[in-house]
Design a protein around this nucleic acid. Sequence first.
DNA 1: GTGGTCTAGACCACC
DNA 2: GTGGTCTAGACCACG
Lengths: 123, 123, 123, 123
Amino acid sequence: MISFEHFKMEDGSPIYTQIILYIKRGIIAGTIRDQDEIPSRRVLSSLLGVNPNTVQKAYRMLEEENLIESRSGAKSFMTVSQIQVDLIRAQLLESNARNLITGMKQMGISKEEAHKLIEKLWD
Amino acid sequence: MISFEHFKMEDGSPIYTQIILYIKRGIIAGTIRDQDEIPSRRVLSSLLGVNPNTVQKAYRMLEEENLIESRSGAKSFMTVSQIQVDLIRAQLLESNARNLITGMKQMGISKEEAHKLIEKLWD
Amino acid sequence: MISFEHFKMEDGSPIYTQIILYIKRGIIAGTIRDQDEIPSRRVLSSLLGVNPNTVQKAYRMLEEENLIESRSGAKSFMTVSQIQVDLIRAQLLESNARNLITGMKQMGISKEEAHKLIEKLWD
Amino acid sequence: MISFEHFKMEDGSPIYTQIILYIKRGIIAGTIRDQDEIPSRRVLSSLLGVNPNTVQKAYRMLEEENLIESRSGAKSFMTVSQIQVDLIRAQLLESNARNLITGMKQMGISKEEAHKLIEKLWD
DNA sequence: GTGGTCTAGACCACC
DNA sequence: GTGGTCTAGACCACG
């Protein structure tokens, strides 16, 4: 059963995308693996204090990406191939870094300053 | 008159926030300065191809932050004190870097890998 | 659900300010309380015969004063602390009385005459 | 020549209405009388620091109420009959008092409290 | 159904 | 021409 203990809701971005992102990042980190069971919509929605529809939407979109599979009964599982991991990893890493880079550039911050800033704020 | 030549619309976030962010980043970069004239909502809206109200919303929110001064019938100007610049700079830099850091951490990426990635993608 | 049955539109001042003022006065009067549900913009706009956007503007400004809490898709509620009540009460009472006083003074009306006039017109 | 030394611009209501109101209150107070000369648009606009058009608009509306008369040359004069004074007095006094009363009532303030408040704030 | 955003365009007060 | 307000109504994300 995959865990949501490190999940923290932010506002600004929709909750369902936050759920999707949390799961994808877990996949990349290796904390969420192929065949892991995922909590039911009801369980997760009460755990996160959000509407069941919100969870359902996140799950549906992950299903459409073939990252979740519903099997007999109510249980659902992750279905993650190595190819998918690599793809998601590449996508997320790049988009994450690009966000920083374009922002820093628009603010006139040099690469060196950016490195320093990360060094300072990283834990 | 402040320039919007480098403004690029993305989707995902509201247009008015993109305008606000563009201006704030310009302030930090030093390309937008105190007492600079800002384009009228008509001018900017036609320039960006958006509705005048969208521009107005961005301007009004900047006015609420005391970054813009506008009077009915007259041109509008930036009113940016050094204190504001410093504050905005700190806020934007930190949030920008934090986004990267928390994302990378959740993905199990080490600080060193993050630095490498930025090095690779910068430029 | 807070009621707008006593709301009367005047002209001269923007509708959205009239809505704001009506709600603030209701807070002071105690007829609008913390956690009261507020009508949706659709409901109120059709009730008052104004555009939904006009209602939304009033609501948004009240939200910026932390008097309303709203989340997308959910109902909105008043969030009124006693401190806020006291503050608004002081502000509105004083401005209301000052308007009369400065007007009367400019017209050369004495305090006693003003009292008499109010006595005559009250009810 | 009628004096504008006690004129104070507020924001919230249009400037031209403030000018009109100032003159009407002066009429009631007796400080502005029939046949008094009024400053030219140019003079008053520079005195108040507003646009000549704004002054012109105020004057035009007062002319439409037959309170101002343009005579030979550029000079204009007040033309105020006792009937007009009485009418304006009644209108302004009542509207001024009614504003306070309806406001106070909506805030759940009793007549006695209103009297006390005026007593406290009057000079 | 609810709020958030956006378009398209109008009128007004003011400069 | 400029900002402030408003109408009329649309689409979307969300619950």
